[in-house]
Design a protein around this nucleic acid. Structure first.
Lengths: 206, 206
DNA sequence: CCTACCGATCGGTAGG
DNA sequence: CCTACCGATCGGTAGG
């Protein structure tokens, strides 16, 4: 009979690590990356604190890995859903629709993970802040690129500022997340779609 | 000779209380209402923990008073600056301009207090969440009322949805706060003004 | 992966 | 307004 707790196989260790990160993303989206504590993860997963910590070495590394896991979820639930659309205007439209759908579906139990993490860490220097800012920046850069391509292809007016487009799409999702989470007001969903449709000059796909 | 520390006068106690709240608002805007700890306030103000706590009785009451103090600052720095404009369209325009100016001036050291508090508490039931949601709701209601008056006066198109106007103004300020705080990107200031000017059909006052 | 432990800090109380 | 203290929890380490 093999021992029950110590010395798990590599595959088992990896499964444990995944379970920690998935639970961590859920906790952090609801209560923030700071309230994601090692002891709490340990209790919820039926492990010891040092068992949890052993996978990461420090809380900061745990936070960084949770941020990366959240980015993987966002990519899967938003970007990948638009991957079938051609670059430029069709992709921009598909990304916008998938972005609203991601909030509508409540992919993270606490709303948009990156909205929460951005506000939580924007004034705290460190690796977590840098990671959140970089990932957000990549997403905004992707959108900007699609907007630029759409202008070049003549699908958006020639005087369209791609940065302005990204700014307005971001604003719509922030305002939507706010209405849904703080006020429980789902009537903001068509409002967000309406803003995006106006910015892009076209109805969003569902 | 009167004693140096215990038994302050009523006026002195009130001054101490004000100092605690002002420091508390600053800390909370940067690091959040949760990291606003009694011990930290005590150290920064050169007091004992129980000296700080004695003014409020519990951390939750301290947080509620800090939220109220932040609301007073917001009223002074935004709403009051537009109080000279007539109700309806002029007021809506003045409020929007003052709102962007409030973010540009960096009234709170950590950016918009209510954006931060809203995201921090939106998924945590309790009195703090209720207070933040209520204050935000009052502000949104004020804006909606001015938008409605503007429609009734014919200053905004008759088919304008006041809720949509408020949603888009909110989005502009959320996106602006995000760009300023997370990316240090002040080029978002004219973008926010541009969004608002389009929503209102008129340039913002400075 | 565990137990056992560390110093630091949390919110809060007793008593003056 | 203070000192002195409480139990709980924090991140993290030693050693297996």
């Amino acid at each position: 009979m093999s021992a029950v707790s110590p010395r798990r196989s590599v595959a088992e260790a990896r499964a444990t690590r995944t379970a920690i990160l998935e639970r961590g993303v859920a906790i952090a989206s609801v209560e923030g990356l700071e309230r994601l504590t090692i002891g709490r993860l340990a209790v919820e997963l039926g492990m010891s604190k040092s068992g949890v910590l052993g996978h990461f070495g420090s809380k900061e590394v745990l936070q960084l890995e949770v941020v990366d896991e959240a980015a993987a979820v966002f990519t899967r639930e938003v970007a990948d859903r638009a991957a079938g659309a051609e670059h430029g205007f069709p992709r921009l439209l598909a990304l916008s629709g998938a972005w609203v759908s991601y909030l509508e579906r409540g992919v993270f139990p606490g709303g948009c993970f990156f909205t929460a993490a951005g506000v939580e860490f924007d004034d705290r220097p460190g690796r977590v802040r840098d990671a959140v800012a970089a990932l957000t920046g990549v997403w905004e850069g992707d959108l900007r690129r699609q907007a630029r391509l759409a202008v070049e292809a003549g699908d958006l007016p020639a005087d369209t500022d791609p940065d302005q487009v990204v700014f307005e799409l971001l604003g719509a999702t922030f305002a939507l997340n706010h209405a849904l989470r703080l006020h429980g007001d789902s009537s903001a969903l068509p409002r967000a779609r309406r803003v995006m449709a106006r910015v892009l000059g076209h109805e969003l796909p569902r």
